[in-house]
Design a binder for these strands. Sequence first.
DNA 1: TTGATTTACGTAATGCTATAACATCTCATC
DNA 2: GATGAGATGTTATAGCATTACGTAAATCAA
Lengths: 134, 134
Amino acid sequence: MSRHNEKTLEDVLAILQRRNKPVSAYDVLDEMSAAKRKTLSPPTVYRALAALKDRGQVHRVESLNAYVACRCGRHEQPCIMSICKDCGSVEECIAPELMRDLGSIAAQSGFMPVRHMIEIHGVCASCREGSMAG
Amino acid sequence: MSRHNEKTLEDVLAILQRRNKPVSAYDVLDEMSAAKRKTLSPPTVYRALAALKDRGQVHRVESLNAYVACRCGRHEQPCIMSICKDCGSVEECIAPELMRDLGSIAAQSGFMPVRHMIEIHGVCASCREGSMAG
DNA sequence: TTGATTTACGTAATGCTATAACATCTCATC
DNA sequence: GATGAGATGTTATAGCATTACGTAAATCAA
């Protein structure tokens, strides 16, 4: 069982939750350093992010090299992330059926899936409204 | 119309095609520099990769920060990439129906998709055989 | 209690990935 | 040949992530 510095984990998670956007590890680092009035180092943050990922409380957004707090509950299911390219917000959704289809498509050639990554870049509802009004 | 240095583009594409694996931009850079007996600079390679991506001849593997030559023909369709975590090989496949489903799932909340990314990490058929035999 | 072992943490250094900024060159056009 | 647009070369830097290692705390055995 890993011990980890629970306080650090809570701090990192809180920062990600406050933003509800993908945040880079270094942005987290800067914000934590400012709060603590002491410069932290990258491994501190990366270790915390890794631990939170293991617990399913944080996702990495591969296409942005950034991290986001999980909003879809503690899931073992992989989720679909819809990322607004205007405001940066992320919507998560779970689609078990689609994931099954995806798995079987990959399996047709004998490939055995282990981890799925689905990210969609686009424009969210409220940004669409904004741009249509403008 | 972009002019680009066609020779550079050909060189980059040839390197990616020879490997049939995701290759980092800096690996491409090193191989090209070695071939030319002259150190090239990152922007040269990144510009070539960007041009090849625009033409649909190269894909970026987001989850690996790496690049791979397109094997599924010149497509405007987004493709699904299955990446073997043992040998690194990549299989591409196109699944228009699944992409449609994915789009409509995202659209349920008013999100307008622009670009889909699907990457699957797992074990390819030949590596599975290898490990079952061993 | 002592000492050996394990695991996590702090810190410094480094490595990998990508782009900014700007001078220069090429080519089409006038 | 002067001009302007866009591609290229080059230097430097920004941004993302990990290695390496010393220290500290917990665990266990003797």
